[in-house]
Design a protein around this nucleic acid. Structure first.
Length: 260
DNA sequence: ATGCCGGGCGAAGCCCGA
């Protein structure tokens, strides 16, 4: 089973690119972030024609997350527990019924948190605490779980082209990194780091300053696996090609393959 | 380079992203 995640920076603006990538990669499950639209204007039929069913939580103009699946989905949760006042569309979770086994997946758009002297930073840290609690609660089912998405976290200095320049950014700050590590300490595996040890692998390059051509990137999109999912991890990689195409998102897909 | 791109909204210019 191939599971991919991609912050598309508007699913409607990116539809041709997303369809192109689905046709060449054929993921079983594709987690999307920043769809930037509501359910009424989500391109359901285009994805259904490619053999996918869609679950999404939308929001006008901002945020929005979706799950595209070749298999039926059940037990869909459209918000992260822990704060009933949080109106931002940043979390959706579903059980993927892939026949004999099955797997739980979540599509996550974690808040950016900049600037760090604004309320956006404590919102990010609180959101991460909520994610940590929920990730812990999921472990008690002893199921395969893949928590994928745009975490807006640069886990280590190996994951950024200019560690010193980014040290005080909300994506790098110690408060952010410690909360990301807390999820790993629960028993989740960073799928990419389970397979690759070296620096310089990125999932995001800014639109500005020819950052992609200069490979000035960040590794901020992640697939975190519960032990039962990590046991089945075959491979994990980033596909940089979509970032180089016309009308590209500033993020590119990262995927993992699990044994069936 | 805390916005140089790019998208949404809505019809010009501001808000937002990382």
């Amino acid at each position: 089973m191939k599971i991919a995640t991609w912050n598309v920076n508007s699913v409607r603006a990116r539809l041709a690119n997303v369809v192109h990538w689905i046709e060449e990669f054929s993921p079983d499950v594709l987690l999307l972030q920043e769809i930037k639209t509501v359910a009424e204007t989500f391109p359901n039929s285009e994805f259904e024609e490619l053999g996918y069913t869609c679950a999404l939580v939308g929001q006008k103009s901002y945020n929005g997350v979706a799950i595209l699946s070749k298999y039926p989905m059940e037990d869909i949760k459209d918000r992260l527990p822990g704060d009933d006042t949080d109106e931002q569309a940043r979390y959706i979770e579903a059980w993927i019924d892939s026949g004999s086994s099955g797997i739980r997946v979540a599509s996550i758009y974690l808040p950016n948190g900049n600037p760090t002297d604004s309320p956006k930073f404590p919102y990010k840290l609180d959101w991460m605490d909520r994610l940590d609690s929920h990730a812990e609660s999921l472990l008690k089912y002893e199921e395969p779980v893949v928590l994928g998405g745009d975490y807006n976290v640069i886990p280590s200095d190996n994951d950024v082209y200019d560690p010193k320049g980014w040290a005080e950014d909300a994506l790098c700050r110690p408060e952010t990194r410690s909360r990301f590590r807390a999820i790993l300490y629960l028993g989740y595996t960073d799928a990419f780091r389970a397979v690759h040890n070296d620096a310089g692998h990125y999932t995001f390059w800014d639109y500005q300053g020819r950052a992609f051509e200069a490979d000035k990137g960040l590794r901020i999109d992640h697939l975190l696996l519960s032990p039962q999912a990590a046991d089945r991890l075959k491979s994990c990689d980033i596909d940089p090609l979509p970032r180089g195409r016309q009308k590209a998102s500033d993020h590119t897909p990262i995927w993992c393959e699990l044994t069936d």
